[in-house]
Design a protein around this nucleic acid. Structure first.
Lengths: 221, 221
DNA sequence: GATAATATTTAGGCTTATCTAAAAATATAT
DNA sequence: ATATATTTTTAGATAAGCCTAAATATTATC
């Protein structure tokens, strides 16, 4: 079984490991984990000895199959707990991150499988992120961002890229929630912002930054 | 905020602090915490500096008001989580202790208050132990043990003194569960065992040890 | 009330996970 | 291709929480 610190490192590596070939850098890990590069190096050595990562000095890291399994299990737990907090305990989607960050480290396979079932085996969490199943399979869908839509297109909000509570609270205030139907009224080329309408209500403007942090799914009009 | 180790010490002191006047001994704490007396002494110094306990060398410890508050909050969390696990996730009462032991250290007042409400503000957990409320008040009832009943008395099972899973599993096998109605058919003086019937079914014998670990409430016949 | 038994504390170490400062390796730029 | 900048690692500390062994208090016993 892994320590809390180990699990957090594995999760961080998992999340930063986008570009397949290149390893995750020590500095980026330090930043993601709010720690110092020297601390990261120490831990990488430890994780490497435990065969949880593939690590060569100065070359960055990647997860081993074993490490990836652990990371995905932590992500699964995090997202299931977030779902529980929002769906059952009626927390706002902007309030659950820190609590799930703790709950994701509870060790009990039976607990998490029962929780999964209790919640109705959800595929996506309250932020629209996919929830890995027991076997580690992750529901996928093509990632389309509001920014990519053009005038008159209709779409449904299905997720957020930025999970900061300030962003989530801003969206809530605008009624931009998961499932909301969004119509692009106009694209303003000058600052790449968009005038949009949610569920056919009063139109308003969203900045490029907001548009590129919203995952959507096109729907026929 | 307190560390996991601190919380476990405070909880252990709380549970061992039965005899008001005398302090809890270093050795008993070491045993309860599965550690060594030397380790306990170290931690007692730390807790004392933090004003969580009243400690004088060689004299044992008692919780300060501040420490008691923390301990009761941990107990509250433990018992609410156990209730959640049994009531909502359908765990057996013999399976929840270790998981609750982890969950009790999740830090979030809002979480625990929402959980409390979600569960319907229960007064007792799946083992019949009282759940402290938000303010720290603990539901009480006089503690009557099956052992104290005499021939022909009727009672309802309301709790267990021993929380070991072997005991709980044994009880489950006998259909001795919370709420079950138990009738004392006969008291055998020789070994102080009792012949009893549960919910008017086939009578069987319970040893003195079992009888003294079962909390009951008398009911009129 | 002295001595033996028991309980507790102190002293000194160990491990995990951090850190800072300095050294070494790699990447960048002219 | 060499100097400079950046990144990463090493060296040496630190704090929390635990340990064993030895020293010291307290309690029990005769």
């Amino acid at each position: 079984m892994n320590t809390l610190a180990e699990e957090n490192y594995l999760k961080a590596i998992y999340k930063l490991d986008t570009n397949e070939k290149i390893g995750v850098s020590t500095n980026s890990l330090a930043e993601a984990l709010n720690s110092k590069p020297a601390s990261v190096t120490d831990m990488l050595k430890k994780l490497s000895e435990k065969k949880l990562i593939n690590y060569r000095k100065y070359q960055g890291v990647n997860l081993s199959a074993k490490g990836k399994k652990v990371a995905i299990r932590v992500v699964r737990k995090h997202r299931l707990w977030e779902t529980f907090l929002v769906q059952q305990l009626k927390f706002g989607w902007d309030q659950v991150h820190d609590i799930a960050e703790q709950l994701e480290h509870i060790h009990s396979d039976e607990l998490i499988d029962r929780l999964d079932e209790f919640l109705g085996n959800p595929n996506f969490d309250p932020h629209g992120d996919p929830i890995p199943d027991k076997a580690g399979n992750i529901p996928s869908r093509k990632e389309l961002v509001l920014d990519e839509l053009v005038k008159n297109e209709l779409a449904q909000v299905i997720g957020v890229k930025d999970h900061s509570s300030s962003f989530l609270q801003y969206l809530t205030g605008l009624k931009v929630e998961l499932g909301a139907v969004i119509k692009v009224i106009e694209h303003i080329e000058y600052d790449r912002s968009k005038k949009v309408a949610i569920n056919n209500n009063e139109p308003f403007t969203l900045s490029e930054q907001v548009c590129s942090n919203l995952y959507v799914k096109r729907i026929k009009k």
